[in-house]
Amino acid sequence: MIATGWTLRRTGSLVERNALIYRRSLTPVLSSIVEPVLYLLSIGIGVGALVGKVAGVDVRYAAYVAPGILATTAMNAAFNQTCFAVFTRMKTDHSYDAIVPTPLSVADIALGEVLSAVISGLFASIGFVLVMLVLGLVVSPDILLAIPGTLLVGYAFAAGGLAVTTYMRDFSDFQFTQLVMLPMFLFATTFYPLTVYPHWLRPLIEILPLYQCIEILREPALGIFHWDILVAVIYLAVFGSLALALATRRLSRQLLA
């Protein structure tokens, strides 16, 4: 029944609302940088002192790991927002009860939340790249291409997070998401290249969305370019769009009963 079409203006009004809320405090952006910086210091620089160089890449270990952690920074900043923040708006604040009776469609709401999360991911990513710069871990000016790459990372995980949120019954259910997110962070080539795995295992790793995120950020960060980066771009765009479609469908059923 209810038209699910979206318009840029209506979607933009929700992004504007979220921006008004987020500009009140820098804490969320800062806190989404703190954890990755700690990983960068302890594993990138600390463990890196024992590791030396990664085979086939002519940079110090910390510079190799940094783009991987950059990907998880964008991922977590976006994902947490469409998970915890949106879930709070749904279940605790009932924010959408006031928004649904306006001309905004559920598609506008879903896309607006995803875009807000993408913007948060972008700010967190820029912050993290600045930390890399300060630590002397920026090895190629091509890292500027990684910045738009973080938008795609944010899109995939913001949409994925929104879809996940529609399945959550209460806050404790989010524990399950950590069962996926943490192993993915540890094993999706954040800390070492895919070649570490035996051949038979590699396709399983390559399927992980975080692996594809790291692909599109690490290559430009290290000044490398392979055509397979396009595969990653298409993968993330499709992954995000499918997740957004699923989230919109499920939100419609929940908000417009």
Partner: peptide, 8 residues
């Protein structure tokens, strides 16, 4: 203000 924006 925010609510007015929802109405364009």
């Amino acid at each position: 203000y925010v609510y007015g924006r929802y109405f364009g």
